[in-house]
């Protein structure tokens, strides 16, 4: 019994990684996915920033959900999310200003990332605080993982390096760092995902 409970908690995290992967299965939050994955490290930073907001907003929304009238729940959630995004902006400006400068506009735009609002509406408002926190961690990790993978592929093709470690002299195929590469790499990764990992 105890064992099953543990595995249920564990599956809350693993579901977000593969079965409900926000990028490759649900295809949500595509804008930051495309825009910030010019290198592996940028993708990872964006994923972690989103995870921060996701966990906090999931916890807070699961706490207040019983008190919020049904009709105004979406605006309430948006305000909660926007508050945590503002908090994140201030923290990043204070402690990691250069990361904040690289990711730029896409940090405030976490407010309108459909993943965060989606989890609030689909999970946090009807589950316990602990479960919502785990769900936030799982989905956040899934998002971070996919952004890092896309970042790695684009960085290898586009600049001939991985996490800044260069293994090809000179430039890579520049198009992969620029806009077209983002669409094309995500497209082909989705194809691979459909082919090998998706349920038959």
């Amino acid at each position: 019994m105890e064992d099953r409970k543990m595995s249920n908690k564990f599956s809350l995290i693993t579901d977000g990684l593969v079965k409900n992967n926000p990028t490759f299965v649900l295809v949500l939050g595509i804008c930051p996915t495309l825009a910030t994955t010019t290198s592996a490290i940028n993708g990872m930073e964006m994923g972690l920033a989103t995870m921060f907001v996701l966990i906090l907003s999931n916890i807070f929304i699961s706490l207040i959900a019983p008190m919020v009238p049904d009709k105004v729940r979406i605006p309430t959630y948006i305000v909660v999310i926007a508050t945590f995004v503002t908090l994140l902006q201030l923290l990043m400006q204070a402690f990691v200003p250069d990361v904040y400068a690289t990711l730029g506009l896409f940090i405030p735009l976490i407010v309108v990332n459909c993943i965060v609002l989606g989890r609030a509406e689909a999970f946090a408002n009807k589950n316990s605080v602990g479960d919502s926190a785990l769900d936030g961690i799982g989905v956040g990790l899934g998002f971070t993982l996919s952004l890092t993978v896309i970042g790695i592929v684009r960085e290898i093709l586009g600049s001939g390096s991985v996490f800044g470690w260069k293994f090809v002299a000179g430039d890579g195929i520049l198009a992969f760092v620029m806009a077209p590469g983002a669409f094309i790499v995500l497209g082909y990764l989705l194809v691979l995902f459909n082919k090998f990992l998706a349920k038959k």
């Binding site: 295809v27 198009a175 669409f183 094309i184 497209g187 082909y188 989705l190």
Partner: peptide, 14 residues
């Protein structure tokens, strides 16, 4: 579905 749409968008971006 989406994969081919994304690749098309990539070519348009080019």
């Amino acid at each position: 579905g989406l994969p081919v749409a994304l690749i098309t968008a990539g070519i348009m971006a080019m």
